[in-house]
Write a protein that binds this DNA or RNA. Structure first.
Lengths: 200, 200
DNA sequence: TTATGACTTGAACAATTGTTCAAGTAAACC
DNA sequence: GGTTTACTTGAACAATTGTTCAAGTCATAA
């Protein structure tokens, strides 16, 4: 019987999300995927190989969701929905609130080269996704933002990371207010680019 | 010869910061502290006991630094300096840019109860520290902010977490611009409190 | 000198880690 | 029907994990 590879990666995603790369032992993985060690190694080569696949799929999924936001006819509304879903959803599995990429970044030094690259590429993929959203908001017919698109994309990514981390232990009411604040600031002022960091 | 306990905890902080709780093996710890297993267990009871001490000291240090910011005669200037130091400092040991509490939060499910509590208490300590800064900025003679102090403190904490995570892999120039943006937004508008999350 | 107490040592322990591999199964191809 | 190919199984492996403990060190007190 051929095992459904997609389902295996989904299960592994859940497990790594909950326990992290080091925290998830091969025996946990065997149980979660309902596969015996030989099968896992035949298919994914390694624990790290499986992890790399998980990270790649996770990042690609996030990038695709952000692209969908950018193609929505009301990108700002879609962006708010995106944040609310990612940050206050999964209240039954609270560990899913923290971004898997950020969680994996915490184990960076203990990972092999392939996994490291996957994480960095994943970060770049998210940045690219946010960049598409910013581009949509800046262009006609919306013209909602003016400023350096790449910088604003990094800013959104920063907000995303911060919110999701805080959401692990703060109340939903708080998080919703912080999303409100985020949308206010998005339309707010931006620092001039050609000026080195200064005060006021 | 009696070993300097403070130096031991400092060395352990460095090690846990670099490798994480699970990633740092007892033999790594023995080498870093230059202590034999028996001594470590006599003094700290556990790997987890040592880790808990590290987290407690780290959080208390952060809280104290924020209190100093709040007592500065120019709290806003001190706040900027605080962010710049925490986020773009330690370029030689880049792993120190990520907040140790956030890094530890990623291992939450794999820790014992004592360590979990230490992390949550540490988060609360940071929130309290940011709260003191907000209080100083809101009160005379500065009157720089008006809004719910606890909410703004959570917002600052969110910015802190997001920035430090991004700073692990983004350029310093980017990070400095994002700090500029942060200070603009701090003085900007805040969502009304008595209203549930809504769109503009 | 002897006894006490705090501290240190490092070999050793059981348990767990990621990984391998010879043997087995079953569908596909000639 | 026989061979190949892809996949599966689970016992077993060496290495590493956190932890223990009998024995040793050394300053101080009696």
């Amino acid at each position: 019987m051929k095992y459904n590879e997609q389902r295996a990666i989904d299960s592994a995603t859940d497990l790594f999300w909950k326990k992290g790369f080091q925290g998830a032992g091969m025996r946990d993985i065997q149980q979660a995927l309902d596969m015996r060690p030989g099968s896992i190694y035949a298919r994914f080569e390694n624990k790290e190989g499986l992890f790399t696949r998980v990270i790649n799929q996770y990042a690609e999924h996030g990038r695709a969701r952000l692209q969908a936001v950018s193609e929505h006819q009301e990108p700002l509304v879609a962006l708010r929905t995106f944040f609310v879903e990612e940050v206050t959803g999964a209240s039954e599995k609270r560990y899913k609130r923290q971004c898997l990429l950020v969680k994996s970044l915490a184990e960076f030094d203990n990972l092999g080269e392939a996994a490291k690259q996957a994480i960095l590429n994943g970060m770049d993929a998210l940045h690219e996704g946010f960049g598409q959203v910013v581009a949509a908001l800046s262009a006609p017919p919306h013209n909602m933002i003016k400023g350096d698109e790449s910088l604003i994309a990094h800013w959104l990514q920063e907000q995303f990371v911060g919110l999701r981390t805080l959401a692990v232990y703060a109340s939903d009411a708080r998080i919703n207010l912080l999303i409100d604040k985020l949308l206010l600031d998005l339309k707010g002022h931006w620092p001039a680019l050609n000026r080195p960091a200064s005060d006021e």
